[in-house]
């Protein structure tokens, strides 16, 4: 199975390292023709304004929208913003997922944090019911979700930080910065992996 990681900007190497540890063929995607033959694509953490601008400049917007209509896409942090339909600000968005996000919702960098999250959906990839250690960096919140979207994780105060709509997945935090690969395995299932 070939999984792409959008490599316009951000921590794409970190995602590729996790995928390779899981035995998956992982490739960097910078141009539209590189989307062919992929079973899914990850949009990494980074700056959503930069990723959006480069996606427009290199004609990736429409190909990514078409890709997301059939195949799996996972956005982490900036990637989640890019998948949303509304970021309360003028910037290029794919608009594939029926979610609204609030950028830098926790404030500036000194407010970035780590916390354990309860993510019941991960039981489908791993029977252990351990919390998921989540790293939030200048993170966005998912401020509202449409009726076709399932909420996968919330903070203690009820704010949404992970959600899924069919084969589309978003997390406000960065599983690629930890050694826990359950979210990556969860995404590989969405992309059609057998086990």
């Amino acid at each position: 199975m070939r999984i792409g990681v959008l490599a316009l900007q951000g921590d794409f190497h970190e995602h590729i390292a996790v995928l390779r540890r899981l035995g998956v063929e992982a490739v960097e995607v910078r141009l539209p023709d590189q989307l062919e033959t992929l079973a899914g694509i990850i949009i990494p953490g980074g700056e959503s304004t930069t990723i959006g601008k480069l996606a427009v400049d290199f004609q990736l917007m429409e190909p990514l929208r078409q890709f997301g209509k059939q195949k799996a896409i996972w956005g982490t942090c900036a990637g989640a913003i890019f998948l949303s339909k509304d970021a309360h600000r003028q910037q290029p968005l794919l608009g594939l997922m029926d979610i609204k996000v609030e950028r830098n919702a926790f404030g500036r960098q000194v407010e970035s944090f780590e916390v354990d999250l309860d993510v019941p959906a991960l039981k489908t990839v791993s029977p252990e019911d351990a919390p998921f250690h989540a790293v939030f960096i200048r993170a966005p919140l998912i401020s509202s979700v449409g009726s076709s979207v399932d909420v996968l994780a919330k903070l203690e105060n009820g704010k949404i930080v992970a959600a899924q709509q069919g084969k589309l997945l978003v997390t406000s935090f960065h599983p690629e910065l930890t050694t826990d690969d359950r979210f990556h395995r969860y995404f590989l299932r969405l992309a059609g992996a057998k086990e």
């Binding site: 316009l8 900007q9 794409f12 980074g46 700056e47 960096i137 200048r138 960065h174």
Partner: peptide, 10 residues
């Protein structure tokens, strides 16, 4: 360190 990782490739 994580914020710097988000700036990579930029």
């Amino acid at each position: 360190k994580g914020l710097a990782q988000m700036l990579k490739g930029g």
